[in-house]
Design a protein around this nucleic acid. Structure first.
Lengths: 130, 130
DNA sequence: CTGTATCCTGTAGGATACTG
DNA sequence: CAGTATCCTACAGGATACAG
């Protein structure tokens, strides 16, 4: 789809405009959405798969690794049974949100209405998961 | 390059988050930069090729057509010899700038410094081009 | 100069199957 | 549940050549 703000094979301009590098952080068709869904708080692998039904496990995994390597998100493995993993934006990742908000805002103005992800609290939030 | 916020084959989420549709406007590896360079005012085909040395004529042409079809930019053919064409952001296209600025701002904060495109006025600006 | 037409390649991402 | 490994395809984009 759209986001094709992805890691393009052909790097546009050497070191020209400031868009390039920042956009590189968002490369990958799913990356912006991924960050978007993490903006509401930590999220587990499986939950992200539900948030983005059409993403394949392979790609989700790859994007998460990339973003982790770039310092945009953090992974926390929870040793439990079944094992789970939580992903959350780092402080740096949070700095990307204003930009995504701006994009979303334009999207709203240009067409529809929508709000930041405020999904229900995880079902087992206050109960037990360990 | 980065944004690969491009036209992905696999549309992320059906109609979920507001990012998707707006990002679709920016699809294509060069699109964000293209809009960026047009933000400083009307620009000719050849000038854009200079702004983005590594883009191929084919792709530049394709992106321009797409953006024109989407109502983001306007094309003005100037019947002169040699013939020239000017591309400029439409009002709608201008609405995308805040978002791009936000992205650029984050890029700056995260790494370097850069400013909006303020290239020199076209050489023949005040001279003759009929 | 402003494009368009071909051809070709790299690679992002889906599907599926399997592991810890 | 949380991933990894393979395989495969679709398509974005570069190079080149040509056209108005």
């Amino acid at each position: 789809m759209g986001l094709k703000v992805r890691k393009s094979r052909a790097p546009p301009i050497p070191g020209a405009c400031p868009l390039t590098e920042c956009l590189a952080l968002l490369s990958g068709a799913w990356t912006p959405n991924l960050i978007w869904y993490l903006s509401g708080g930590p999220r587990r692998f499986g939950e992200l798969r539900i948030d983005m039904p059409r993403i394949s496990a392979k790609v989700l995994s790859a994007r998460l690794r990339e973003l982790e390597a770039k310092g945009v998100i953090e992974r926390q493995l929870i040793a439990s049974s079944p094992p789970s993993a939580e992903y959350a934006l780092t402080e740096m990742g949070g700095q990307l949100l204003p930009a995504l908000d701006a994009i979303a805002r334009v999207g709203q103005k240009l067409k529809g209405v929508c709000s930041r992800p405020r999904r229900a609290v995880r079902s087992s939030e206050s109960s037990s998961r360990n």
